[in-house]
């Protein structure tokens, strides 16, 4: 087992775009590490800052928020989300948590390559942070 597989990466996906995007990756049989846990939500805007910090405290190594970006069906949700993630970063810094362990990105229903890239980069970031 490679060190990547031992990580626990929480991937927050949206009903409208990134969750079906993750399915597309599966339909194409593209491979990635099993240390990845995809949860779907109507929109990640619902999570308070504590959710992310608590998850890290519980033992989640990295969180990728795969938002719908400009495809987001909810009024004003994306700007709010991105502001909140900014505040989470600030608190992560305060608490000495490497900020590369949290990533906000946009994944569409057919963004296969981008999906894999985000996971790969997150794994590298976490391992680098752990090594440091």
């Amino acid at each position: 087992m490679s060190p990547e597989d031992d990580l626990k990466i929480l991937i927050i996906t949206t009903m409208i775009s990134s969750y079906p995007g993750a399915n597309t990756v599966g339909q194409a049989r593209l491979q990635y590490s099993p240390g990845t846990f995809i949860v779907r939500v109507p929109d990640p805007v619902m999570f308070p800052e504590e959710f992310y910090l608590d998850s890290f405290a519980k033992g989640i190594d990295g969180i990728i928020i795969m938002s719908s970006g400009s495809d987001c069906p909810y009024e004003g949700a994306y700007p709010r989300l991105s502001k909140r993630v900014g505040r989470v970063y600030a608190r992560m810094k305060e608490q000495g948590i490497d900020t590369s362990r949290l990533k906000l990105t946009t994944i569409c229903t057919v963004c296969k390559a981008a999906f894999l890239k985000e996971i790969r980069e997150m794994q590298q970031n976490i391992l680098k942070a752990k090594a440091a």
């Binding site: 409208i16 775009s17 079906p20 400009s70 495809d71 229903t109 057919v110 963004c111």
Partner: peptide, 12 residues
Amino acid sequence: PTLDCASCITTP
């Protein structure tokens, strides 16, 4: 002109 991903808005 929105540059929405066609698949994403058609599939639902």
